[in-house]
Write a protein that binds this DNA or RNA. Structure first.
Lengths: 132, 132
DNA sequence: TTTGCCTTTGACGTTGACGTCAAGTTCTAG
DNA sequence: CTAGAACTTGACGTCAACGTCAAAGGCAAA
């Protein structure tokens, strides 16, 4: 398939696909006229790339990960980075959960009849940073 | 206190503090000479701002949230946005958890003796996008 | 008063993952 | 064979949250 179809299938822009190729994340063969041609498997590949991006990894890190995934072999150097990224991801999740609770408190503030009934929630929303 | 001390206390740069003020997130009074002066409470304020940033909110959204937090009253318009942000946060957490599992699979690939023992994990790492 | 750190505004630089526009080329349906 | 959709490379634009540098002025201690 050509770039437009892949873009549709994988729900990304053609610009993104060219960018991925430029970053060494995605390969393509070419027609006689120079247009990119992709195999069916490219769709999954792009979804994998997207997922790694979503995980907060940069293109450079992803570029170093993909060969390891393909070869099903991870070296010690890469392992260190993986553990690092894993920790980062765990931390991010915790931060997002904390933020989610804060948003919940604000939502409760709007949906509950009155604030007088439960001032503790408000305090939590306005002064959680004072916790050790 | 002046800007340097607040920066130290809240663990942010002075540039960030000026930026927050520029974005309407933080206020300050001034000395006769024009230097910024902050009350003690500013430290908590900055930490709150940082936390909201960490939650993935933009300065514009935070600027609209802070008055609601201060007044302890959330209007229906803001509530809609809050619910939206809450959903976004939930989705992000789910994505990060999925990415975390993917990273775990890669880590297992590196730390386990051999890949032959458990190819299922590898498949999961390489083809999770094919799941419905 | 002088030393010297702190602060001011202004403005340009950075980073990442693309968006967008332009000018030209290729492919495909009819 | 021809219209026009799809594709090519190249290059500049974007956005957010600051970093960084410069020139000038404020402030506290000796």
């Amino acid at each position: 398939m050509r770039i437009g179809e892949l873009a549709d299938r994988a729900c990304v822009s053609t610009r993104a696909l060219r960018y991925y190729e430029e970053q060494g994340l995605l390969r393509s063969s070419r027609t006689a006229g120079g247009q990119r041609v992709y195999p069916q498997s490219a769709e999954d590949r792009v979804r994998l790339i997207r997922e790694l991006y979503t995980a907060g990894l940069t293109s450079r890190v992803i570029a170093s990960l993909l060969p390891a995934i393909d070869a099903r072999h991870v070296g010690p150097e890469l392992l260190a980075r993986l553990l690092d990224e894993r920790a980062r991801t765990t931390a991010k999740i915790a931060e997002l959960q904390a933020a989610g609770q804060r948003l919940d408190a604000l939502i409760a503030l709007a949906t509950h009849p009155d604030s007088d009934s439960c001032p503790a929630t408000l305090d939590q929303a306005a002064a959680s940073s004072s916790a050790p």
